[in-house]
Design a protein around this nucleic acid. Sequence first.
DNA 1: GCGTTCATGTAAAAAGTTACATGATTGG
DNA 2: CCAATCATGTAACTTTTTACATGAACGC
Lengths: 189, 189
Amino acid sequence: MSLRHALLGLLAQGPASGYDLMKIFDISLANVWPATQSQVYGELSRLADAGLVKVAAEGPRGRKEYAIDDTGLAELRHWLTEVEPTHVHRSDMLLRVFFLGRLDREQAAGYLRRQAEFAAGRHESLAGLVDIVSEGEDDLSVYGRLALEWGLRFTNLHREWAEWATAEIEKWPSPRDPLTGEAPRETGG
Amino acid sequence: MSLRHALLGLLAQGPASGYDLMKIFDISLANVWPATQSQVYGELSRLADAGLVKVAAEGPRGRKEYAIDDTGLAELRHWLTEVEPTHVHRSDMLLRVFFLGRLDREQAAGYLRRQAEFAAGRHESLAGLVDIVSEGEDDLSVYGRLALEWGLRFTNLHREWAEWATAEIEKWPSPRDPLTGEAPRETGG
DNA sequence: GCGTTCATGTAAAAAGTTACATGATTGG
DNA sequence: CCAATCATGTAACTTTTTACATGAACGC
């Protein structure tokens, strides 16, 4: 139920509408916990039903400003201090790696090279965030910078690993056909 | 639809039952794409309905051995070469980091220290896999070793980052209360 | 007036989790 | 014969994705 806690965490900074939260989400939390508009609005309703937040004010265009309640704050604190992170990672990028043996060596190396390039680009775009985020002294900015540092290290690891893996593959001499040196599988199925 | 492709990828190595696949999953793919028994059996049925795999043999205890079809192989190759990885990461561990400002400095540092320990433990358990996995010369082992290297680097990054972040927090002098040096928030809500 | 931004929702489908249910076969 | 392993499935629920639908208010 992390989306729920993400919303509680943001509302702990101060009241906000679903629309506001969605924007904050997109610029700050999307890298660690993406959420869609439809999810955010739905979860806010459920949060209000459960009494963890309440509609503190209504504005133009049906705007509802939500504020966190004491039960919400307690739940947030409980989640932060008592609930072990799940540490479940899914990566379709790494999943593909297991099956790279279905491709010939060049294609497999190409895949990894593209991953290195992707990671380099992602690293640059995160690096561009550093200046923007370095201003704020609010909790979200201060702690967000720790998460950003994680992102910089991660994208760097990603690139380095992919470059290493590319080189690794390229130095294997077509392992399954030592006699001819030919690649065992070609593009056509 | 990565689960589908994970199953196709495993079946590309040779025929297997849902039960077999589940075991292979648990020891090799679970770190990059966890799946439950109920998901595997369900997806195999759908895969068979879609004509990407077929039941090649039936054994004792209702065992169904699935084999990949040409359409399945084509779909696997298409996924490997044409479909961009989504690069969507969810981490409730990092999500919590954004909200660490709700805790006092010691609690926040404690959280990060626990993450460093967790990562160290995970690293050790992956390192233990190296010997086991270093034998196989089949595709899954050969390429799985690349993924394992990723895991070793990742857990190492995780630990280093968490240690860095702990130190970072500990050197902040209760930033929101420079006059008294007292922590601005205490444990009680 | 008109385009942009603000603002909220619903519906359906896909994916993933948890729990339950059932029973055959094998090895000691 | 009995425990462990093999083996498959269903049901209910939660979470996430995608698409659609609607309209008010603001600024120029």
